[in-house]
Amino acid sequence: MLVKTVFAGFGGQGVLSMGLNLTQAAMMEGKHVTYLPSYGAEVRGGTANCTVAVSNEEIASPVASSPEFVIAMNLPSLVRFQNQIESGGVLLFDASLVETEVSRGDIEVVGIPATDLANKIGSPKSANMVMLGAFIKKSNLVSLDSVIEGLKSTFKGKPDLVTINEQALRTGYDLL
């Protein structure tokens, strides 16, 4: 089993932390995992993306030329990555921000109103965690518990942040 996921969006939407949280959880579950962010001049234009590969065995390449999952938090990311998704793969996007018609019939397209849901729970900044929750449910790559455990170590000494993010995660997770 080797699954590659691309998280993409505007800088500030927390796409890199989505990837990092998944990576952390996979590591805690003893899986092989790599995390590769976009870097350099590419990220200075305001968009960011990262690729996470999770596997039961050694990972050959941390790069995804045809990821199984793409999480698009904005329209440019959806446009850029939708054609790269492996046939049979899944595209998740923030339906609160992106109105789109995906032209491919060989992938599953899932719109999650992540930003609206995040606003609803009073934490507009945690749309990424809502999205991650939905992705965890959809992909079943790691358990929700592992992601929450990971959050606790990331936000050590900041219990408020753990609570907010956990709530957002569960909101997305319970949606699907």
Binding site: V33, Y35, L36, P62
Partner: peptide, 9 residues
Amino acid sequence: GILGQMMEP
């Protein structure tokens, strides 16, 4: 660049 940028356990 990849080895430098990527994260692994």
